[in-house]
Write a protein that binds this DNA or RNA. Structure first.
Length: 285
DNA sequence: CCAACTACCTGTTAGC
DNA sequence: TGCTAACAGGTAGTTG
């Protein structure tokens, strides 16, 4: 559920609250909360204990904390944080009663606590190394996202057009462009009036470019409203929901009138995932 | 390389 | 009322 705007809201909150803070104690409560660690939870605890958070960065839906030993020392190692479906990074005052789904707990030198809460355990923290480009090597396969200032939009449009796959699936392929999940794929396709099942190959280059520009605007609007939330699973670091969901035009609106033409929004299932679109505005051809 | 499919999770809701 | 099935869905891994 958390996609680019939601993750960016969390990243900003973390940057504000934990940059420069030292981790004075840490405890991992669930084995699935850490990944790619031969040493298991203990390895992550050892890596983070005593480290200082120097920066919090993001690409697509992936965040990472840059850790060092001393606020003015260069970053030594990144730890990747992915929220999965239901992960939350929360800043708590000491003494807050424990949450049922608390997976990782850390005590910070700021006096506050950092909680990683995750109901469905698809989220995780992962110790990593820096690759040559300054990104964690473990996410080298994740493409730039639509809000990345270095994004080559024309080049991306050409890559997308080379794929013989329904456009919605291509948008959600994190190797191609990152940060787009089911919600924002539906929203940007609705906005651009494009049918989700049209093969990317059959679209004109200009239409693909237009779709990407529209997508970038949708992301910016959602970010300005603090992201989307339906059921309080997605919240910022203070536990507050965003309110972009009131701006959704297609996603989750099955049977409700299309805000553009009044036609009831249709639901279609592709690869077991539900999609929402307007049959009248988003024609196949 | 590309495309398609599946496993991994648990809380909530719909249906019988 | 109580049970079961469907649903939510991001990513890695596998298969063809």
């Amino acid at each position: 559920m958390p996609e680019l705007p939601e993750v960016e809201v969390v990243r900003r909150g973390l940057a504000t609250h934990i940059t420069g803070a030292r981790i004075e104690a840490i405890q991992v409560f669930h084995p699935r909360a850490v990944r790619n660690t031969p040493g298991g939870p203990a390895q992550v605890e050892a890596m983070l204990d005593g480290a200082t958070v120097q920066a919090v960065r993001r690409r697509g839906k992936f965040m990472w904390l840059e850790l060092g030993h001393g606020a003015d020392q260069p970053a030594e190692l990144p730890v990747i944080v992915h929220l999965g479906m239901s992960g939350q990074m929360l800043i708590k005052d000491p003494g807050t009663p424990q949450h049922k789904h608390l997976r990782i707990w850390a005590k910070l030198s700021s006096g506050q606590e950092l909680w990683f809460v995750d109901q469905r355990t698809f989220g995780y923290w992962e110790p990593a190394d820096f690759g040559p480009d300054g990104l964690p090597a473990a996410i080298a396969h994740i493409a730039p996202d639509l809000l990345d200032p270095t994004l080559d939009l024309r080049g991306l449009a050409r890559t997308i057009k080379a794929r013989n796959t329904p456009i919605k699936r291509v948008l959600m392929d994190q190797h191609v462009v990152s940060g787009i999940g089911n919600i924002y794929a539906d929203e940007m396709l609705w906005e651009a009036r494009i049918h989700p099942l049209i093969p990317a190959k059959r679209m004109s280059l200009g239409r693909v470019e237009k779709l990407l520009e529209v997508g970038r605007e949708v992301m910016r609007r959602a970010l300005a409203q603090g992201g989307t939330s339906f059921d309080a699973l997605y919240v910022n670091v203070n536990g507050e929901s965003g309110y972009f969901d009131v701006s959704l035009n297609a996603y989750g609106r099955t049977g409700k009138p299309c805000p553009r033409c009044g036609e009831p929004i249709a639901r279609l299932v592709d690869v077991g995932r539900s999609g929402h679109f307007c049959r009248r505005c988003q024609r196949r051809r």
